[in-house]
């Protein structure tokens, strides 16, 4: 395993061919610059990332960030999917995504407002009845 600088780190190790995390050379804390928390609140796993049009000029970004922009370029991608595709731990992806969000390269869509409390007295999902109904009908129609 090599500890090359991030700049010289090619994106291919994230592909399906990399069969171990050790093969990905760069340690997670290096990718995040030592941070373990993003500046924003923790993004939900299923939050969808959408790349903004002007993110094309994404020079000077780390390979990991560029890779995120690449994966999210043509479709909505969730945090969890990015984590799987990039073979990076969820926490790392969260930090990178919120970095990119702050830099204006992408937006994050979340269905459920963070810290929602619906007053139902339980750790409730915060989903509305109509959403649940759509889900129910959707599953039934599959």
């Amino acid at each position: 395993m090599s500890y090359g600088p991030p700049g010289g780190h090619h994106a291919s190790p994230y592909g399906a061919d990399a069969d171990g995390y050790e093969a990905a050379t760069v340690r997670p804390y290096a990718v995040t610059g030592g941070r373990v928390r993003s500046s924003l609140s923790d993004l939900p796993l299923e939050a969808l990332v959408e790349v903004l049009p002007d993110a094309v000029a994404s020079r000077g970004l780390t390979p990991e960030k560029r890779s995120i922009l690449q994966h999210a370029a043509h479709t909505y991608v969730s945090i969890a999917e990015l984590s799987a595709l990039l073979r990076l731990p969820l926490g790392v992806v969260r930090i990178l995504v919120s970095d990119l969000q702050e830099a204006g390269h992408l937006t994050v869509h979340t269905t459920i407002p963070v810290n929602v409390h619906t007053g139902h007295g339980s750790a409730h999902s915060g989903l509305s009845l109509s959403v649940l109904e759509s889900v129910l009908n959707g599953i039934s129609a599959l």
Partner: peptide, 30 residues
């Protein structure tokens, strides 16, 4: 799902020591 809905199914980590992740998984889940 129809109606521009995406349903994610998350399988919990099978190992006990990942229980801490459950809070994360469960937040906002149906």
């Amino acid at each position: 799902l129809p109606g521009n809905l995406w349903l994610y199914l998350f399988g919990t980590p099978g190992q006990d020591r990942f229980l801490f992740m459950w809070d994360d998984l469960v937040r906002g889940a149906i």
